[in-house]
């Protein structure tokens, strides 16, 4: 399988990757860069576990081909906060008890992060709508929605 070299920005750092024609951004992140915070579940754009920011927009990285990313800027969950320095949104997830098994959570955080960057004060219906592509089988949804609301209200302060 022939490979192509792409140069892109990941979490603010330039990277050059050799990727195959069919390789997804998700697999490149997980296997070439060991950025395993981005999760794989359905691999067909239906669950949101693999959500990352591509040039600021939330996308399902399982649907994005790595070869198309020359010059792009990607932000993954690893670029949002660290365990000892959480983002306001990540802290809100814990404050609201929104995390159960946590497998969907990186994708949820990324989707919510993109929403708040786009609309700092979304109403409840907008939050529900914008997170509807992210599945949580533990179904912590009510608390996840509250966490986004909490983070958005704190954005005032």
């Amino acid at each position: 399988m022939s490979s192509h070299r792409v140069t892109l920005d990941i979490n603010g750092e330039p990277h050059s990757l050799d990727v195959t024609a069919t390789q997804t951004l998700l697999d490149a992140l997980r296997w070439q860069l060991d950025l395993t915070g981005t999760k794989k579940c359905c691999a067909e754009g239906e669950c949101g576990a693999c959500t990352v920011l591509l040039d600021g927009l939330a996308v399902n990285s399982c649907l994005v081909l790595a070869t198309e990313l020359h010059g792009a800027s990607v932000t993954t969950i690893e670029g949002i906060g660290t365990p000892s320095s959480l983002s306001r949104l990540q802290d809100a997830f814990l404050a609201e008890g929104a995390v159960q098994c946590g497998f969907c959570i990186p994708g949820m955080v990324m989707a919510a992060h993109a929403l708040l960057a786009d609309q700092p004060h979304p109403d409840a219906a907008t939050i529900r709508d914008r997170l509807s592509g992210n599945l949580c089988r533990c179904a912590g949804y009510p608390r996840i929605l509250r966490a986004v609301q909490l983070a958005s209200s704190q954005a005032d302060e």
Binding site: G37, T82, P83, L86, Q90, V99, G102, I105
Partner: peptide
């Protein structure tokens, strides 16, 4: 274990 999960580190 919450911090590791919201940051994708777990």
């Amino acid at each position: 274990g919450g911090q590791e999960r919201v940051t994708g580190r777990y």
